[in-house]
């Protein structure tokens, strides 16, 4: 079973596939050019000591996003 959740809700070391970016303007542009696009598989690497930002592995590189940014990324994960 699959379900779609926000990236913020994902737990450490969880895998998923990006389904949708629910923001537009500069933030979405920035996400796209950094490779956060529909269909990309991601892996949550961990979170900073204060639980924000979150580090995400995409293919062979790692990105960091703040939680309020991760809120805009819908990810399909195993239920």
């Amino acid at each position: 079973m699959k379900k779609v959740i926000r990236m913020r809700e994902m737990s450490d070391n969880q895998k998923g596939i990006i389904m949708k970016i629910t923001t537009n303007g500069e933030m979405s542009r920035r996400m796209r050019e950094m490779g956060l696009v529909h269909g990309t598989s991601i892996l949550i690497m961990g979170r900073a000591p204060l639980k924000d930002p979150v580090a995400v592995k995409i293919n062979d590189y790692t990105l960091t996003l703040r939680n309020n940014e991760a809120d805009h990324i819908m990810v399909e994960v195993d239920a």
């Binding site: 500069e26 933030m27 920035r30 950094m34 590189y61 790692t62 990105l63 960091t64």
Partner: peptide, 10 residues
């Protein structure tokens, strides 16, 4: 606030 999305380079 500028988006923080940033790369952690190897």
């Amino acid at each position: 606030k500028t988006p923080f999305v940033m790369e952690l380079p190897p």
